[in-house]
Amino acid sequence: MASHRKLRAAAVVCAVVAVAGPAPAVAWAAAPAAVPASAPAAAPAGVRAAVQASARAAVPAWVAAAPAPAPSPDPFANLTPDEIAERAVTATQSATSLRMTGRVVADGEPLDIDFAVNDRQECTGVMKIGGGTAELRRVDDITYMKGDEAFWRVSMASQGMPEAQIDATIELVKGRWLKIAPGQAGSGDLSGVCDLKGLLADLDEDEEERTGLVRGPDREVDDTPVATLVKKKTGGETTTVSVSQEGKPYILKMVKAGGDEPGSMLLSDYDKPVEVTVPPADETVDLSKLDQSTAA
């Protein structure tokens, strides 16, 4: 499932955005950030691939949810597992907003995320990788990113930046939000992270991924009865999807165990408002003016 890589790449993109700013001579490569919203031309291909893949992760812990009595009547009683999956994908793609919480692994690196996104490309949340934490907010087409020192050190080091440049950059943007407007370096790719429709479209990218399913025991996810759909692949990889049996058949949990990219993702707060607060102006650094600030 491709979505894992979009979140993983997003973390790397945050560093790339800072490095690919307006003035090449400026050593501010690591401006603070959080969850991706758009990346520069130098960003790794598949920046969005990390985030979208998040919605289809897997870890045994999720599968261990306590079994729950099947609702009566079973809304999926006359449907095959593949038909249930088709309805679940359709319903989930119709959502106007949702919250994604969980852990995915890509390239051997675990990435924890917790963010809410709506269909107006607004989002707010937190991501953790390599012992560091970063925040992301996007509203009115403006992306704000803020990361702690550990986050930026890991991100910038992964891009091969010299230690001296990393130190100078962290000192320059310490405790501040990096403001990225449309058209600026990094804005395009990072915006994909807050593109709900784009993220959910990935669920239907490969129809073969949701065929040949088997229905497992009914369970509960946050007290909501769910139908459990399981797909096993050769090599020991197992994907488990939990579909709500109440209201719309939204996907409430996705788990991928085994394989190279295990992970788990909990989807909640469907169609609820996403409140995004714009950081105070005196706590932000405008990407377009960062080089000027350095010169000063």
Score class of each variant (00 low, 15 high):
Met1Thr: 12
Ala2Lys: 12
Ser3Cys: 15
His4Cys: 14
Ala11Gln: 10
Ala15Thr: 04
Val16Arg: 08
Val17Ile: 09
Val19Ser: 06
Ala25Asn: 05
Trp28Arg: 14
Ala31Leu: 07
Ala34Gly: 14
Val35His: 10
Gly46Ile: 04
Val47Thr: 04
Ala50Glu: 02
Ala55Asn: 15
Arg56Cys: 15
Ala58Trp: 13
Ala61Leu: 06
Val63Gln: 13
Ala65Thr: 02
Pro71His: 05
Ser72Glu: 05
Asp74Asn: 08
Pro75Ala: 10
Leu79Gln: 03
Leu79Phe: 09
Asp82Val: 00
Val89Lys: 11
Gln93His: 08
Gln93Arg: 14
Arg99Val: 08
Arg99Asn: 12
Met100Asn: 13
Gly102Ala: 04
Val105Cys: 11
Val105Pro: 04
Asp107Thr: 10
Pro110Lys: 06
Pro110Met: 06
Leu111Cys: 13
Leu111Gly: 06
Val117Lys: 14
Gln121Lys: 02
Cys123Asp: 08
Gly132Glu: 01
Arg138Cys: 00
Val154Arg: 15
Val154Ala: 13
Val154His: 15
Ala157Ile: 02
Ala157Glu: 11
Gly160Pro: 02
Pro162Glu: 04
Glu163Cys: 09
Thr169Cys: 07
Val173Ile: 11
Val173Met: 09
Trp177Phe: 01
Ala185Leu: 01
Gly186Ala: 03
Ser191Met: 02
Gly192Ser: 14
Val193Gln: 07
Lys197Asp: 12
Leu199Arg: 08
Ala201Gly: 12
Asp204Ala: 15
Glu209Met: 08
Glu209Leu: 11
Arg210His: 14
Gly216Asn: 12
Pro217Thr: 06
Arg219Trp: 04
Lys231Asn: 00
Lys233Thr: 12
Thr234Ala: 14
Thr234Val: 03
Gly236Asn: 12
Thr239Glu: 12
Thr239Cys: 06
Thr240Ala: 02
Ser242Leu: 15
Ser242Tyr: 15
Ser242Thr: 11
Ser244Glu: 00
Ser244Asn: 02
Gln245Trp: 03
Pro249Lys: 06
Gly258Phe: 09
Gly259Leu: 07
Asp260Met: 15
Glu261Tyr: 11
Ser264Thr: 14
Leu266His: 05
Leu267His: 06
Leu267Arg: 02
Asp269Ser: 09
Pro273Ser: 00
Thr277Lys: 10
Asp286Glu: 00
Asp286Trp: 00
Asp286Arg: 03
Leu287Ser: 00
Ser288Gly: 03
Thr294Ala: 15
Thr294Phe: 12
Thr294Lys: 11
Ala295Lys: 14
Ala295Asp: 13
Ala296Asn: 08
